[in-house]
Nucleic acid binder design. Structure first.
Lengths: 213, 213
DNA sequence: CACTAATGTTAACGATGTCAACATTGCGTG
DNA sequence: CACGCAATGTTGACATCGTTAACATTAGTG
């Protein structure tokens, strides 16, 4: 008796709770401070309960990062579909979706491109998810290259460059977040603020040179 | 007696040793695994001796990152000087120097743009060093904008975009490092390998669109 | 030479990641 | 429906870590 709705032995949704809370804690305090025991405490379970769902802290992180890549993949794919049939429009739309994903999901994005996991190959799901994200961009550029016989550059090379441009915009925007003291006029980071307000302008500028190859 | 040349009470160069070894350990095992106590052990001093030189682990990291930005600054400045008087050549040279810095000093670079320190403003030296790095690029672009009255874009905006392009190339190259399983032909990351071999090609491609504004 | 600041040391605290042994529960099979 | 196994949670323990406080040694300066 005395055990009404209190403390059911099984949490019911621990795995999901851990992932959700982990993202939140990382957003609030950084990856370094993430603690499995704290997560357990927050979920109301014993300190080592998380180990029934993740063999180690790194595996928890790997699962989170995998989720991030899947979300990115979805965002980009959706943007491509919504962009109609013009290949260049598709490219711009995908690029913009990429940057927007980073802006709306900074924690995921930082995790995905951080070095917390120096090697994806240990985690098959992650590896696949990451390659899939890249694959969307690559396939779009293969279509584009096929439609333009004159190009002197391969689709894979092109996608590396495009990805660089887009990734550069996205990461710098996150980098500048919370770092600019705005010393006065002429200060370094005002350009980044402009870029943050209108990423499409920057993206078009960068893609222009690439697409005129 | 019995204390010949053994264990001089003062290490003599602890601060420098800590910084040097820290970089090495991070390169070998990642920032997460960096331990002040391990550094102390390695330097042959007591577990808390590092605290005489750095108030906290984060301050050690801040010092490292500051050093990284100073090195980056030097690399870029040197490249600009060596590039002669043509402004576009200067820009390409600086960009290439940036990417090369990242390739040759991956540990520094990753630290500098990681989120270990979410806020530079707590560390004045760091803040200055980081702004100085950016300032080199900005000043070069101010000259370039001044020399081309027709441009419809400001120097700060231009430098944000250029920095994005260059930073994108640099970070993606590091990201792909150790992540490519090279599935077969048509695999995603071959484009990045090409980019790694000849970063200048990618940089020129990206800058082309920007400079024709 | 004395004194003070710089540099190191020892001891201790709470927190963490992880493992091993054990408890409880839910579910599918007979 | 009963049984048993797999999934899920718990307790206890260990080594390590970051950090602080109190104390020791040295170096450099008046």
């Amino acid at each position: 008796m005395t055990a009404r709705t209190e403390d059911p032995y099984h949490h019911g949704d621990l795995r999901e709770t851990l992932l959700r809370d982990a993202l939140q804690e990382i957003a609030a305090a950084g990856t370094e401070k993430l603690s499995l025991r704290a997560l357990a405490r927050r979920a109301g379970v014993s300190p080592t309960a998380p180990y029934r769902h993740f063999p180690s802290k790194r595996c928890l992180l790997a699962a989170l990062i995998t989720r991030g890549f899947r979300l990115l993949d979805e965002s980009i794919s959706a943007a491509r579909k919504a962009a109609g049939s013009d290949l260049e429009s598709q490219l711009v739309a995908m690029s913009l979706a990429y940057v927007r994903f980073a802006q709306h999901n900074p924690t995921y994005y930082e995790l995905m491109f951080s070095t917390v996991l120096e090697d994806f190959s240990e985690y098959e799901d992650l590896q696949q998810a990451a390659e899939a994200s890249y694959g969307v961009l690559l396939s779009a550029l293969e279509d584009l290259v096929a439609a333009r016989p004159g190009l002197d550059i391969s689709a894979s090379e092109l996608s590396a460059v495009v990805w660089s441009a887009v990734h550069g915009v996205a990461s710098l925007l996150l980098f500048s977040h919370g770092r600019a003291p705005a010393k006065g006029r002429g200060d370094p980071l005002t350009g980044l603020e402009l870029l943050a307000e209108d990423p499409e302008r920057g993206i078009r500028l960068l893609l222009r040179g690439v697409l005129s190859a």
